[in-house]
């Protein structure tokens, strides 16, 4: 099974060979223009999300308060990105929706890594039964459509961002377990691990002292590259009404809400869609650059 790859990870590169330690040359890295631009976008959106109540022109509307006096207004000085069918300021809702994307994405990626990495380490290091069991379970979860998991969860605990995030973590962590497992198996055959074993160091010492640092880099790149898919996945569930619930803002949900007005008021659906595209693109470019740099 070691030959299956998560679509965007390109983890084969990330995990390829064992890598030499290298001093971090932050400045050289940031000199690359695209990476700097991407980082800027990420920082700006994150700041906007964190300080949403201060950034949003109409914080109440961002949280869902209706404003029937100004329904379906086009772009103007008062409403930079126009208003939706309830008269709510789209920019304010974008700012609040960014919270869902950024923090939801962060949570999914971290949780998937926190579950997947230890299991992958265990599976790879002990080989034999745990490895088989973990990869089998992973395989089953991966072939289970997240949408169905989301439905199952929403029928039990109700629809909401929490359900969506849980539904996405369940089929997500096996990717981490799988790739780490492969990585451990490869590293184990490397000379320095064998040398450590011959020198009489214990299993857990080797695991934490030698394998973990090597693997951390792979995990970091994976997490960064996973941010985009995680954000899109939240959006996909939001679009189906299985994520954030109205009247709260969520970019996927906003596209869904705006879609019926696409012909007459295209700005309602296009702004959140474009925001999502820009954020994901920034993550991807930044992740690519980081990876190139680490692979050097």
């Amino acid at each position: 099974m070691k030959d299956e790859l998560k679509y965007k990870h390109l983890a084969e590169q990330a995990a390829r060979e064992h890598r030499r330690e290298r001093k971090i040359r932050t400045i050289a890295f940031l000199k690359r223009k695209s990476a700097a631009a991407a980082l800027l976008v990420l920082v700006l959106i994150t700041l906007a999300a964190v300080f949403a109540p201060l950034v949003a022109p109409y914080p109440d509307q961002g949280k869902g308060a209706v404003n029937l006096g100004e329904r379906l207004q086009p772009l103007s000085g008062k409403h930079l990105l126009g208003t939706d069918t309830f008269g709510r300021d789209i920019l304010s809702r974008l700012v609040y929706g960014a919270r869902v994307s950024i923090f939801g994405g962060l949570f999914i990626v971290c949780a998937a890594a926190l579950i997947g990495v230890p299991l992958g380490l265990w599976a790879g290091y002990s080989e034999g039964a745990p490895g088989v069991v973990i990869s089998r379970i992973g395989e089953i979860l991966i072939s289970f459509p997240a949408v169905l998991i989301a439905i199952a969860i929403t029928t039990v605990i109700g629809a909401g961002l929490t359900s969506a995030v849980i539904a996405l973590i369940i089929p997500w962590w096996p990717w981490y377990a799988r790739i780490i497992q492969g990585e451990v198996l490869r590293l184990k055959r490397m000379l320095f691990v064998e040398a450590a074993q011959m020198l009489g160091y214990g299993k857990s010492y080797i695991l934490f002292r030698h394998l973990l640092p090597n693997i951390m880099r792979t995990v970091m790149v994976m997490m960064l590259l996973d941010f985009g898919p995680a954000i899109i996945s939240i959006g996909l569930l939001g679009f189906l009404g299985l994520g954030t619930q109205p009247p709260n803002a969520d970019w996927g949900l906003m596209v869904w809400e705006g879609a019926p007005n696409l012909m007459q008021q295209p700005w309602i659906a296009i702004s959140p869609g474009a925001a999502m595209f820009i954020l994901v693109m920034a993550f991807n470019i930044f992740g690519d650059n980081l990876q190139d740099y680490l692979d050097g």
């Binding site: 965007k8 985009g228 899109i232 959006g235 996909l236 679009f239 996927g252 596209v255 869904w256 879609a259 696409l262 659906a269 296009i270 869609g273 474009a274 999502m276 595209f277 994901v280 693109m281 991807n284 470019i285 690519d288």
Partner: peptide
Amino acid sequence: SAAVSLPIFFLALLLQ
């Protein structure tokens, strides 16, 4: 990068 960053539902609506 752009192709993998486009949310599918947004792309489909845009194409339409």
